[in-house]
Write a protein that binds this DNA or RNA. Structure first.
Length: 427
RNA sequence: GGAGGGGUGGCAGAGCGGUUGAAUGCACUGGUCUUGAAAACCAGCAAGGGUUAAUAGCCCUUCGAGGGUUCGAAUCCCUCCUCCUCCGCCA
């Protein structure tokens, strides 16, 4: 949620920055609505004040044993008037809330302009696209021999699910453990286990709702029940751990890592990446979440991105780092780095991690606070998160980059302890 | 699934229709005292919104959430959420 105060003070500059994201913010309409809200609020509050004063008078009179009938008559018409004034005010207020909840975060100053992923800017590159002295296969062809079975998964559920068997299943588990251990032991994150189902308040808190409900899997217990949602990322449960809470300064920075499955309906992406594991309804991800003091968040974004990069480097996977342009930036993010791993099967760099600073946007939506020791007042902290990494896509990258001519796959050294010492995964 | 008891300020915990936004304690902030600290004492200490030059005053809202009764609700009624205790069931 945008800072309503800031929006009132300087709507023009916010509108200008939102334009970088391709969002037209109607400043005039917002200000007009806000003027209405103020006027109606004053009307309503005057009536409330009258009611309060008169009611207190009645209380006093009664205590002194006076006749309160004339006072009651005086107050009679007030009730209806007040109800009307409150309804008017509430109507305008809810329009304003809708705008505030539906408006994305403003991009940081150094976010490049652009419409889509083609306008993202490469920041750095690690390693070179893997060279082969044979024609490399993609992960689907490699996986067929190693235990990837999408047909069985379709039989169980539908398209865009996968069954992994044997060594491949173990490789995915090894990757997960390796990532959790790396972030826990080397990068100072606390491992957390969280629910995979979240309520609507949580999804509003991180920004998936109200605008992106079609991307989620909703579940209802009964027809009339409010829905719960399968989490699309661990960002939702982990960040919402502090929803409605006040965090003490000495507890910051909070750094948490969680492994969860992620569920995405992938509505609107029919026909894209239909082959293999790249775009699934269910996939595993190790997620990094940080809660930091506002002044520390930009340094924290660099640090957190580095933590994700460390995993790619240990797995000897070539990648590049891009900064997302305004048009490709997510709803809640102020700035995002994507890490894109080289996939020989596609001869392309593909997203494997997305690391974002949300500044106070999520904290304000979920009313998370920290007590600023300088003012002793509660203020929204800054939140960040990043994939560290998407496990399914990492599995793809390991298979494709470390494949050999005979269809076997060399296990990266860092992973071998998690594979019982296995050096090569063969059919 | 059954029975019962709770949810109040940063925390603990009173209040159970009427000058209660809320006693008291702890924590926190400032002051007195002290060489310094502690103790003691004094004072302050919720958030959001409106008005305003104002982080001054004044006003409004908020006692789990939402509805209702009433001139007036933290206090009464209804629904929901949530926590705890006991029984049953279960991994």
């Amino acid at each position: 949620m945008l800072d309503a105060k800031l929006l009132r003070q300087d709507p023009e500059s916010i509108a200008k920055r939102l334009a970088v994201k391709g969002v037209q913010f109607d400043v005039a309409a917002f200000l007009a609505l806000d003027e209405q809200r103020k006027a109606l609020t004053v009307d309503m509050q005057e009536l409330q004040n009258t009611r309060n004063v008169k009611s207190k008078g009645i209380g006093k009179a009664k205590a002194q044993g006076e006749d309160i009938a004339p006072l009651l008559a005086e107050v009679e018409s007030l009730k209806a008037q007040l109800a009307e004034a409150e309804a008017k005010q509430a109507a305008v207020q809810s329009q304003i809330d809708e705008i505030l909840m539906g408006t994305p975060n403003v991009p940081a100053d150094d976010v490049p302009a652009g419409n889509d992923e083609d306008d993202n800017v490469e920041v750095m590159k690690w390693g070179e696209p893997t060279a082969f002295d044979f024609e490399p296969k993609d992960h689907v062809d490699l996986g067929e021999q190693l235990g990837l079975d999408t047909e069985t998964a379709a039989n169980i559920a539908s398209a865009r699910f996968a069954v992994l068997k044997g060594g491949l299943a173990r490789l995915q588990r090894a990757l997960t453990q390796f990532m959790l251990d790396t972030h826990g032991a080397e990068h100072g994150y606390t491992e957390v286990y969280v629910p995979y189902i979240a309520n609507a308040d949580s999804l509003r808190g991180t920004g998936q709702l109200p605008k992106f409900e079609e991307d989620l899997f909703a579940i209802r217990r009964g027809e009339d029940e409010v829905p719960f949602y399968l989490i699309p990322t661990a960002e939702v449960p982990v960040t919402n751990m502090v929803r409605g809470k006040i965090v003490e300064d000495k507890e910051l920075p909070v750094k948490m890592v969680a492994h969860t499955p992620c569920f995405r309906s992938e509505a609107g992406s029919y026909g894209r990446d239909t082959r293999g594991l790249i775009r699934q309804h269910q996939f595993e991800k190790v997620e990094l979440v940080q809660l930091v003091r506002p002044q520390d968040s930009w340094a924290a974004l660099e640090e957190l991105t580095g933590h994700a990069e460390a995993v790619l480097q240990k797995l000897e996977l070539p990648y590049r780092k891009v900064i997302l342009c305004g048009g490709d930036l997510g709803f809640s993010a102020a700035k995002t780095y994507d890490l894109e791993v080289w996939l020989p099967g596609q001869q392309a760099y593909r997203e494997i991690s997305s690391c974002s600073n949300f500044e106070s946007f999520q904290a304000r939506r979920m009313q998370a606070r920290w007590r600023n020791p300088e003012t002793n007042k509660p203020e929204p902290p800054h939140t960040l998160n990043g994939s560290g990494l998407a496990v399914g896509r990492t599995l793809v990258a390991v298979l494709e980059n470390h494949q050999q001519a005979d269809g076997s796959v060399v296990i990266p050294e860092a992973l071998r302890p998690y594979m019982g010492g296995l050096e090569v995964l063969a059919p």
